[in-house]
Design a protein around this nucleic acid. Structure first.
Lengths: 193, 193
DNA sequence: ACTTAGTGGAACACCGATGTTCCATAACGG
DNA sequence: CCGTTATGGAACATCGGTGTTCCACTAAGT
């Protein structure tokens, strides 16, 4: 038995881990701008050879899956940080929104790269997802969230607002903080009963 | 001078016009589900031979351009119908939202198919776009729209809400009318000063 | 009915992305 | 300092989508 992690590939020697991260990072940034970018482009953007990319991710889908897992992990972490159970539910969702905004290009990818959501972890409800929906219900119960807006719509709404805000920051020159401010203000007003 | 249209290709004999429309229609529906669908798939979905597709649209980009133009045209028509200059600006935008919702899969495409917006008509501001922004400004002036939300954000917001609502209707079983209701309610609350 | 316009299918060349192999060489760690 | 580890590049096979041509066939229009 190996002392590896519970993840698939497990403990890589520092160098490999660093290269792998470099590739994934570059891929996220690049694919956010052009979802059809080739693996050669990704390699170039990551500053490595195309061969190396294939060494780490035999098929394109493997890279996509890795990105998907990465984003998913970041979402989970962000959900943790938001401490959804503290204070009024509406406020909790605003905090969550702020945390999710840190996903950056990950937001763009989730919208524009459907293949990313084909990876196993995405089809079934994640803990973060459940926690989110629970919080919305709590908001409905305690009266801090408009009861006319059901859970599903609010989930879609949050993501849509985040995507809009991030894209506005990415394409137009809008500074990130003001984009986020608009996003949060809009969310607050939308949720208010 | 010819009695043809001002458009590029102009008056086609009824049969051709019908086939062309069938192809574009099928392409819209298909690409909304999978933006990477091949021309063969489009042909199959349209119930015509692949050769025929190429006859009408020599290159893939030509088809995309046609779709882009089609959507653009529908947007213009919808903007007309919304009568943006009547009544309070906030109400006008809600009417506009209702009209835009009719774009259906066109909404999905605008978000998920960037190549669609590469076509010439999209880079420069359209009349509809200008009319929209003018209406937002009017809302700011007359006090029916939250002055903290700038024109650009509101434009993005409207599209994002529409996309969310449409996707919710398309993927989950939510009936279209209730999706639209949620969308409008959210917009109304977001715009309110 | 007969001419013309429109269609479908097969066959082909082409291209870019993908995935694989092999080897020389650079970086790293003991 | 030397062996292991990781890398980059070149060369190659493959594959699917694309775009083209040609011909037989069918549906319109007069």
């Amino acid at each position: 038995m190996r002392m590896g992690e519970d993840r698939a590939v497990a403990a890589e020697s520092g160098t490999r881990a660093r290269t792998r991260r470099a590739i994934v990072q570059a891929a996220v940034a690049l694919l956010a701008g052009d979802p059809t970018a080739s693996l050669g482009d990704v390699a170039a953007a990551a500053g490595v050879g195309r061969t190396t990319v294939h060494r780490y991710f035999p098929e394109r889908s493997d890279l996509l899956a890795a990105i998907g897992a990465d984003v998913l992990e970041k979402v989970a972490a962000a959900t943790e940080r938001a401490r959804l159970d503290d204070g009024p539910a509406a406020k909790a969702l605003e905090r969550l929104c702020q945390e999710y905004f840190e996903l950056g290009d990950g937001l763009t990818l989730m919208f524009e790269t459907p293949q990313l959501t084909n990876w196993s972890g995405w089809e079934q409800e994640t803990a973060a997802d459940r926690h989110f929906l629970d919080t919305v219900r709590r908001g409905h119960a305690e009266g801090s969230i408009d009861p006319e807006l059901d859970e599903e719509w609010i989930r879609n709404l949050v993501w849509a607002l985040l995507y809009s805000a991030w894209e506005q920051a990415r394409t137009t020159g809008t500074p990130k903080h003001s984009a986020l401010t608009l996003c949060l203000r809009t969310l607050r007003k939308a949720l208010a009963p």
